[in-house]
């Protein structure tokens, strides 16, 4: 199937820069609130967006490499060692940003939660390692589908906690969209052909969700 609109490399760079900018704005925009409160949920929320931003910097690096060497996907550059490093870093940081976002909502419901974050780091390292080890599109799609299902399930569990008090402006839906777009953006790097036809729609929807989160963060943090 042919793409609806062929996105130029310039558009890819702009997209990455906007996401990096939004991630860093959210991280630094909430610094004062965290410095004053030292609240754990706020710490994990900020780290999620810092990791988003760094992951997207590696994404940009991968796309620059793919464009410079005139290949279709990063694993075609596999004999070059830094392509492994860039892909490993991208997968580790992306997975951690997803885990931090989930954990920022879930941490208060979990008993003995101090060790869980180390487990998340270990899982993220395993995900990054198996991504390098198994150079297979179906494996990548399966892995990301599993990641998305786990993330969705965690958000569902959190919102159906008996202690949870539903609010008028529930942010759970925005989190779910954010997680979906994050996973789809990982798929877009690992198996570019899979989302080629809907790339523009994916980018526009991702940007909308990021702008919504950024707007809410800046409004609520008094910036």
């Amino acid at each position: 199937m042919l793409p609806l609109i062929n996105l130029g490399f310039g558009a890819e760079i702009i997209y990455s820069f906007v996401i990096i900018f939004c991630g860093l704005m959210i991280y630094f925009g909430t610094k004062e609130l965290y410095d004053l409160s030292s609240y754990k949920g706020l710490k994990y929320f900020r780290l999620a967006f810092l990791f988003f931003a760094i992951a997207y910097a590696f994404r940009l690096l991968i796309q620059l490499a793919v464009a410079s060497f005139n290949v279709h996907e990063i694993m075609e550059l596999a004999p070059i060692y830094w392509s492994y490093v860039a892909l490993f870093a991208f997968m580790y940081l992306s997975s951690m940003s997803i885990f931090y976002l989930i954990y920022s909502v879930l941490w208060k419901n979990l008993k003995n939660n101090s060790k869980i974050i180390y487990i998340f780091h270990a899982i993220a390292i395993v995900i990054a390692a198996v991504t390098i080890a198994f150079n297979n599109s179906f494996f990548y799609l399966g892995l990301n589908a599993l990641l998305l299902i786990s993330a969705g399930f965690a958000i569902y569990l959190s919102s159906h906690n008996p202690k949870y008090k539903p609010k008028k402006n529930n942010f759970g839906t925005a989190y779910l969209f954010l997680l979906i777009f994050l996973v789809l953006n990982i798929v877009n790097i690992l198996v570019p052909i899979f989302l080629e036809t809907v790339k523009l729609v994916l980018y526009l929807l991702s940007l909308s969700v990021f702008f919504l989160v950024l707007y809410k963060v800046l409004k609520k943090s008094g910036n």
């Binding site: 609130l33 004053l36 409160s37 609240y39 949920g41 609010k167």
Partner: peptide, 19 residues
């Protein structure tokens, strides 16, 4: 002093993002 000034904002932020 800054904590007292920002207290309401911190609580509202935590509630808004369900942290």
């Amino acid at each position: 002093f800054r904590f007292l000034e920002r207290y309401k904002m911190i609580i509202s932020f935590i509630e808004e993002f369900e942290l």
